[in-house]
């Protein structure tokens, strides 16, 4: 996945059975963001692989004050890249 400066990883082991998965997102390179991220803590959240889109979560993160509106695309893309990898791995398992 392209280095967006925003890192997204699994926050739990993925056994491929549940449609929701816990992810953790944090800023590795603040210089790549237009806005100034609030703090560099890791943000943990659950994501529904079937019902939700990465852009939904990115927008909610902006609305919750974690990121500036101008960074919603970078955050969405970072989540999308990780979710794509999870779904690819799951398809390989099946």
């Amino acid at each position: 996945a392209e280095d967006t400066g925003v890192r997204v990883e699994l926050a739990e082991e993925d056994h491929g059975r549940k449609s929701t998965i816990a992810l953790r997102l944090w800023v590795e390179d603040p210089k790549k963001l237009k806005g100034k991220p609030k703090d560099n803590g890791a943000i943990e959240f659950t994501f529904d692989l079937e019902k939700e889109t990465p852009e939904d979560v990115a927008q909610e993160m902006v609305e919750s004050g974690f990121f500036h509106e101008s960074d919603v695309k970078i955050v969405g893309k970072s989540i999308r890249d990780r979710v794509a990898l999870i779904q690819w791995r799951r398809s390989r398992i099946r």
Binding site: N40, G41, F45, T46, V57, E60, M61
Partner: peptide, 27 residues
């Protein structure tokens, strides 16, 4: 303060926890 929780109006919970130092300075 870290380990804070923010619940978005749509109901999603965001839990903020410290990033392990080692992960912050990854190349």
């Amino acid at each position: 303060s870290l380990n804070a929780q923010v619940v978005h109006s749509a109901g999603r919970r965001f839990i903020v926890s410290p990033v392990p130092e080692s992960r912050l300075r990854e190349p």
